[in-house]
Each structure stands twice: as structure tokens, then as C-alpha cells.
Amino acid sequence: MVLSRLNGLGDDELVGELNEIARKCRIEIVKMVYRAQAGHPGGSLSEIDLLTALYSTQLRIKPKEPKWHDRDRFILSKGHASPGMYAILAEMGFIQHTDLESYRVLGGICQGHVDMKFTPGVDFSAGSLGMGLSFGIGCALASRFDNSERECYVMLGDGEIQEGSVWEAMMAAKHHELGNLNVILDCNRIQNDDFVESQMRMFSIPDKWISFGWNVKEIDGHDMKEIVEGLRWLKENNEGPSVLIANTIKGKGVSYMENNPKFHGAAPNEEQYEMAMKELGE
């Protein structure tokens, strides 16, 4: 594990530690968006438990050597949910906590949408939805060509998979039987304008992935024990591509942001900020 203090912990202790890391990340997420008075808190808060467990327990990475060739790749395809990514990168030591102050600021390393040219630890410049899975296929193929054990993880959003090119990629990943390609689908049920259901009905998301030949497992994306087990399942399942469908709550952890489409891409005002800090135990 990247964080040596997590080695050797029992399951319950590990879950406790991970929840605490996620809590600290939530505080940073809200702070970043509040300072910038712009950004995407909702999707950052829905993904952060998943990112915390992924980075803390599973990814083979070296924060002091972010370009290490044989690192596992992580692609945040829903690249607007960057505050979540920056928060966990800071916790892992890829960047400094002070770097988070540069979110959306000219000259800063924390761009509005994640960008591999600016931030150590970012493997793909996302921000335009629907691109990360295809890029991840390229990374997974490269790993195969290199005879490497490195795995590739891609996080998609449930709104994002409305992009047609995602389905091109789903077909291609199965066609090439990429067992080292793992998707984490953050199903927070809300997209920019409103609830996913009102913008484009998706019917059964698991059935769609199953019909494309993927291995599918569904979890509660805020239950740390389920997340850790689900991620382990992703890594160990190497017969073809796998998707972990995580049911999450947009804005999770801040009461007025939870399940509220308004906080897909809006910053809290001062009063709301104070309330969020209080709720998150800051």
C-alpha cells in the first residue's frame, strides 16, 4: 500500500482509516470549490470514497516517481470531478496540500479539469466526457504489449456513458479481451441539467455492460468494506474487462448537496460553506 500506516491493519481498522482519509478529502473538495467559487463538488463527493480506497489499497504507484513506467494507470474520465482527484493526490503525496489552492487559478497545477500536462499523478487529460475508456484501452494494450502486470483503471460517470463513443470502447475492450482493464462506474444518478433519468433513461445499466460481455459487480459506493472488496474483485478478475458499478449519492457528505442537481457544478456561498465544514467535522 502507498500509505505504509495502512499495512497490516485488520479489516475494521482499515475501513476506519479509509473513511477518515475520505472525510479529509471531502473537506478539501469543498474548500477548493468554495475558494474558486466554481467547479464540481457533487461528483467529487460521490466518487471520493471510491478514489480513497483505490489509491490507498490497490494502485501500484510511486507518488515520488509519478511517471514510473510500470505504475498502474488511473484515468478519471469524468475529468470535471477534479477536486476529488486533487484531494486524493495530495493525501497520497503526489502533490502538496498547498497546491490545492491553485485549483482553477492561473499558473496553478490544479486545472479546472484534470490535465496530465499540469498535475503529477494525472495519467490523462480529461474534461470532455466519454474519452477515458478508449484511452484506457490504449494503456491496457500497451501493458499487454510490454508483457507488464500493470493494470488500468478508468472511472466513468453514469451521465457520461450517454456519450456514444463509450459504447465503441466497451465493444473494443471486450473484442480485445482486456482483462487488465477495469472500470469503476460512479452512478450518482445526476448529470449537469438534472437527474439522469430525466435527461436520458438508461434502464438497466448492469444489463447493458453484461450484454457487451463485461464482468459486472454492483456495490454501494459509500460502503468502504464493499468498495475494498469490489476493487479486489476488479483486480483479480482478469478474464476479460470488468466493471464495478458503484451506486453513489451525488454530493455525499454535505446535506444540502446530497441528491441535489444544483451542486453538480456550483460553489457554496459563505453560509453554505460554514455548514459544510461543520458537517464534515472541520
Binding site: D123, S134, I137, A142, A169, M171, A172
Partner: peptide, 18 residues
């Protein structure tokens, strides 16, 4: 990449990044 140019360009990008 089958008949899927959007996917192809980004698969190529992923390969180049590695």
C-alpha cells in the same frame, strides 16, 4: 478498432502515453 474512429484515436493516444 472496428468501425469506430472516435475510439481508435484515443486508443492510439493511450498507447502513445505508454
Amino acid at each position: 478498432c472496428g468501425i469506430g474512429e472516435q475510439n481508435m484515436m484515443l486508443v492510439a493516444a493511450g498507447l502513445a502515453s505508454s
